[in-house]
């Protein structure tokens, strides 16, 4: 097990370095460097421009810039934002909190909806219920998230007034008791989580369903049945725990999908998060922030799938040999 963990961790770190290098390369190749934008204002003097270029090391060769950036990144220093002059890490931390809430809410919705439906579908493959669940999951996959968001916001938010129209909490949430504050947060979290979670629901239903079908057909379950165990006992004690492994394994696949969807959700629901920070930075060509957000989101993805792999291996020892 220790060797397996070591191997996976090393692979994840190597991947992270590659991802970081790729990010750096992409941004280097991008046109419209920020200094050029500054140069558009004739009242900004050449000395100021030169000073900025020197300050950000833009006069150095690309390899030197890369090496400097990598070593700083390893120390957790992501530099200063071009446009806001604040540490990138500080900006990212501001976004990370909101993103984490949204991600957690979406995953909660996702599993609460997908696990029961996947199990029901997997128990009776080919039945009418199975077909209905398939249509349900495909519908939410095919429906662009922002359309669902607009409809829900208009009906449940503007017309009925049941849910807030965005943001993470009420204006006076800070003055509430911690219980009320939590409830207020969940009230705000409901719609964005629902929209984001439903967009990936089909994926997870599929994993659970096919996993369960496979397990139910396995020798292990047949043996349990042969021993005369009741159907429910077979299901809950033998089949479901084994279905869990592939579901966990696919957690790593969900992360990039959710992070991508989150950008749009954050904009529609005025939710603070990494997606908004990254998008604004790209529009402004704020290179350190672009690098920071892209790197951080990739790191979240890599860590997520590392975690999933380790959990999977812990549950299912066979996976360690893979």
């Amino acid at each position: 097990m220790a060797r397996f963990i070591l191997r996976r961790v090393v692979a994840a770190v190597v991947l992270l370095v590659l991802v970081a290098t790729a990010t750096f390369g992409l941004v280097q190749a991008a046109p419209g460097q920020p200094i050029e934008l500054l140069a558009l204002d004739p009242r900004v003097g050449p000395e100021f421009r030169a000073e900025l270029i020197r300050q950000y090391g833009l006069d150095q060769p690309v390899t030197v810039q890369w090496a400097r950036w990598m070593t700083a990144t390893l120390r957790g220093e992501l530099g200063l934002s071009f446009s806001q002059k604040r540490p990138v890490s500080e900006l990212l931390m501001e976004g990370l909190g909101g993103s984490a809430w949204l991600m957690a809410g979406a995953l909660f919705v996702l599993y609460i909806v997908a696990l029961p439906l996947g199990i029901v579908a997997g128990l009776r493959p080919g039945s009418r219920v199975d077909r209905a669940i398939l249509v349900f999951s495909q519908f939410f996959w095919a429906l662009p998230g922002f359309v669902l968001a607009v409809v829900l916001l208009e009906i449940l938010g503007v017309r009925l007034g049941w849910f807030p129209l965005g943001l993470m909490q009420d204006l006076d949430a800070e003055r509430m008791s911690s219980m009320d504050r939590l409830l207020n947060r969940l009230h705000h979290l409901f719609l964005p989580s629902l929209v984001l979670g439903l967009s990936s629901v089909g994926l997870v239903i599929g994993f659970v369903r096919s996993g369960l079908i496979g397990v139910l057909a396995s020798d292990h379950v047949r043996a349990a049945r042969a021993r005369g165990l009741s159907e429910s006992r077979v299901l809950f004690r033998h089949a479901l725990p084994n279905t869990l492994a592939p579901v966990i394994q696919h957690f790593g696949v969900l992360m990039p999908a959710l992070l991508s969807g989150a950008l749009i959700i954050e904009v529609v629901f005025s939710w603070p998060g990494l997606g908004r920070i990254g998008y604004a930075a790209i529009v402004e060509r704020d290179i350190p922030v672009v690098l920071g957000t892209t790197l951080l989101s990739a790191a979240v993805v890599i860590m997520g799938s590392l975690l999933a792999d380790l959990l999977h291996a812990w549950i299912d020892p066979r996976a360690r040999d893979a």
Binding site: G157, G166, S270
Partner: peptide, 20 residues
């Protein structure tokens, strides 16, 4: 005086309509 940051145009219009 509170400045509420709403990046999306449609969301701003919605919040105005709803009285937020």
């Amino acid at each position: 005086i509170v400045f509420q940051i709403v990046p999306d145009r449609d969301s701003r219009l919605n919040q105005l309509r709803a009285g937020d």
